[in-house]
Structures are given as structure tokens and as C-alpha cells.
């Protein structure tokens, strides 16, 4: 249990967990408090990059020491989260951009004049 851990390890692991949680919380605050949609998309990124990363790092260190073998499947979690975040982010952001442009809202860059759809030619 946690009382059997060496002191340096408890301090290290708790520091990582607390700092990671703090970053994630800052991101959540940002999600609630920031004014526009484009600002708010930056908040949760903190949870998925460094916030989550630090918590996973703490988990990897803790289980590596207590199980006395290398535990690194947290790396896979981090990899999957990092690789999939841009997909949802782009989906949300482009939907909002589209809507803002259709509604003619201010503060949004104009759609470029000529848009070529990069769709592959249909095979008949």
C-alpha cells in the first residue's frame, strides 16, 4: 500500500498527480470561463497534453516501482489520446467556422474565394 512506499517515490508521484490535476482543472476552468468558442477549444487541450500526461507518468512510475517491472502501457494511452484529439477538435472547429461564415458573424476569417474539393474522382 501507499504507506510502504519510499518517501521520495510518494513525493514524486503525488507531485506529478497534483500538477497534472491542476493543469487539467485550469483547462476546465478555461472551458467554462472563456468568452468565445475559439478560445474555449484551447482549454481541454491542457488536460489531454500535459495534464493527462503527468497523471499517466505518475501511474507508470508508481506501478513500475511497486510491481518491480517496467510498466509502460500508459504510453499507449497517451499516444492514442494525442493522436485522436485533433480529429474531434478539427471536426468541432470546422463545423463552427462553417456556421459562423454562413451566418456572417464577425471576427471569423473569410472563406477563401476558390475552394477545390479534393474528392477523388468517382470510378465508374
Amino acid at each position: 500500500m501507499i504507506s510502504d512506499l519510499p518517501l521520495w517515490l510518494s513525493i514524486l508521484v503525488s507531485a506529478f498527480v497534483v500538477l497534472g490535476a491542476l493543469l487539467t482543472m485550469a483547462g476546465c476552468f478555461g472551458l467554462v470561463r472563456l468568452k468565445s468558442f475559439y478560445l474555449r477549444i484551447h482549454g481541454p487541450t491542457m488536460g489531454t497534453s500535459m495534464g493527462g500526461g503527468l497523471i499517466l507518468l505518475a501511474s507508470a512510475i508508481y506501478f513500475t516501482v511497486t510491481r518491480e517491472r517496467l510498466v509502460v502501457h500508459e504510453l499507449v494511452i497517451f499516444l492514442f489520446v494525442t493522436l485522436t484529439t485533433p480529429v474531434t477538435l478539427m471536426l468541432l472547429a470546422r463545423a463552427t467556422l462553417f456556421r459562423d461564415r454562413v451566418e456572417g458573424n464577425e471576427g471569423v476569417p473569410k472563406r477563401p474565394e476558390k475552394i477545390e474539393t479534393p474528392a477523388a474522382p468517382l470510378k465508374t
Binding site: 497534453s49 494525442t82 484529439t85 485533433p86 477563401p112 479534393p118
Partner: peptide, 23 residues
């Protein structure tokens, strides 16, 4: 795109293949 999105200060929104620009 993954790097810029994982950085909290920046978000990759839209890539325009025809003009090779990114918003």
C-alpha cells in the same frame, strides 16, 4: 496538425489543399 493541436496555445482549424495554407 497533431503537434499544433496538442499545444494548448494553438489549434489547427482548417487546411486548404488548393492553396496550401492552414488556418
Amino acid at each position: 496538425a497533431v503537434i499544433l493541436t496538442a499545444t494548448p496555445g494553438s489549434a489547427w482549424l482548417e487546411y486548404d489543399r488548393a492553396r496550401s495554407t492552414v488556418l
